[in-house]
Structures are given as C-alpha cells and as structure tokens.
Design a protein around this nucleic acid. Structure first.
Length: 265
DNA sequence: ATGGCTGGCGACGCCAGA
C-alpha cells in the first residue's frame, strides 16, 4: 500500500486581533498542526504578543507588532523562524507593520498584510498600489531563488469575479479594482503559483466572510488570503484548503486559516 | 443606495476593516 508521503503544511491566518483571538488560534493550531504559519492583523504592540502561550503550544515565533492596527508574525512548529527581513523595502517613510520574512523548515516565507485600500479613489488606494509595486520588486527577487519560497498572507485582492459571492456588490471596492487585479496578475506572471486556485480549479472557495447578514453561515465570502509558491515549491504541491470551521465559531475572526501541503524535501 | 458587525482605544463614540 502506498503511504501518504511526508508533507509540510504552510498556513496563513488573519486573526483580527491576537489578544481576542488567542483561544481560537491555539485550538486551530492543535487541530490543524501546521508547520509554518503567517499571522496578520495582530492589532497589538510587540510587548503584547503571546509568545509564551505559543511556545507552550509548540511554536516558535517572530513578530512585528503595531499599536491598534496591522501587525504580522511567523510561527514555526518546533522551531523559531530565522528572520531575513521585516518591513517591505522601497519606502523608508512607511511605518506600517505589514511584511515579515524568514526561513522556516527550509522554506523562505514572506508573510504579508497587503493594504486594504478603501476608500477608492484616494490616498489609501494610492498607498495600496504603491505597496503592490514594492511587493512586485521584492517578489521578483524571491521567485527566482533556487530554493523553495512562499509568499502568503492577506493580500486584500479578489483576483477574479469567481472569487467573490456577488461581484456587483463589491464592484466599487478597492479589493477588486482593475489596477489591483492587474498588479496581482503581474505578480503571478513572475512565476508564482496561486496554490488554492491550482488545487481547486474553478470550484468556489472563500477565505473571508464579513460579519454582516450571516454571510459566513451562508458562505457568501471572498477569496483574498493567498498562498503563492515559487517553481521549486510549486512542484511539491500536494493539497490546499481553507479551514472554514474556524470562521463558524463564536467570536471568530472574519478570515479563516488558509493552508497548503507540500511534499517534504 | 445604504447599512449592517467587530476590535482596539480609551472612556461612549470613533476609526478602520473588507
């Protein structure tokens, strides 16, 4: 009998407040047992990051917090990620905590929290587009690496109309503007594989459901959390999915953990 | 066309999210 090959599981989870969501996060880690995790929207300063609780759960961590908003972290199961970069290059004046990069379990992982960009048009939308251009520059350097690399996180991009329950309702939203989609397309064109799309094809799969009108229960969502793999890692892709059950719990984040499994090297 | 819900902050309402 063929045995299931040994795999590595990489996941991203926008927790919408690490303080409030710690019980959810710990329960999910215990059940899903991911090897590498990118977290977004910590909404906490560095000193408030629950490193001890995560260590007790078996995860080493690095994090870049910020008061009230943003904040990203990387977790390694049984290991502390070896940080290679924090903050997206290209704008020294940008103080928002949205990018963290490290080597974890022999994979280079870039965890991102791409700006929302609403309302558009306006300065926030301009900041989003500029941030995407900076990401494109960094991603170009990453995609060509000979070793496995993943970019994962909350991209705040609805790539196509198939990735939203009602395109008309979101027509004017920053998440699906043509410029944003075009930038995401250019990112993929560098050679990245959109792992969820690769595995699920045309099947609808969402990663976010807003808090209104019981959208989670009715599966009226968006696909905005993405896992991109460079060619050496994409070749090892085995499976990908979304842990929607996390979103259906009481006091849940509006995002669900989104993961991929790759063959271990 | 609008508002509906939630977290963080810091004192009951405001900002930001998506």
């Amino acid at each position: 009998m063929p045995r299931k090959p040994k795999t590595l599981k990489l996941a991203t989870f926008n927790v919408n407040g690490i303080g409030t969501r710690l019980p959810h996060l710990l329960a999910w880690l215990d059940k899903a047992r991911p090897d590498v995790v990118a977290l977004q929207e910590l909404k906490a300063v560095d000193q408030a990051f629950p490193a001890a609780e995560l260590e007790a759960a078996g995860y080493g961590a690095i994090w870049h917090g910020q008061r009230s908003w943003n904040g990203v972290a990387l977790l390694g199961r049984g290991t502390v990620p070896v940080e290679s970069r924090r903050g997206l290059p290209g704008d020294p004046a940008d103080t928002q905590s949205r990018y963290i990069e490290a080597a974890v379990h022999s994979v280079v992982v870039a965890g991102i929290y791409l700006p929302n960009g609403n309302p558009q048009p306006g300065p926030k939308f301009d900041y989003k587009l500029a941030w995407m251009e900076r990401l494109l520059r960094r991603a170009q350097a990453l995609v060509a690496q000979p070793h496995p690399v993943a970019i994962l996180g909350d991209f705040n991009v609805i790539p196509t109309d198939e990735d939203v329950y009602d395109p008309k309702a979101w027509r004017k939203d920053a998440l699906m503007q043509p410029e944003v989609r075009e930038a995401f397309e250019r990112l993929l064109a560098q050679g990245w594989t959109d792992a969820l799309r690769q595995v699920h094809g045309d099947r609808r799969i969402y990663t976010f459901w807003d808090y209104f009108r019981q959208h989670a229960e009715r599966d009226r969502g968006l696909r905005i959390d993405h896992v991109l793999l460079n060619p050496p890692l994409a070749r090892r892709l085995v499976d990908a999915g979304v842990d929607r059950w996390v979103r259906l719990q009481e006091k849940a984040s509006d995002h669900a953990p989104t993961w991929v499994e790759v063959r271990a090297p």
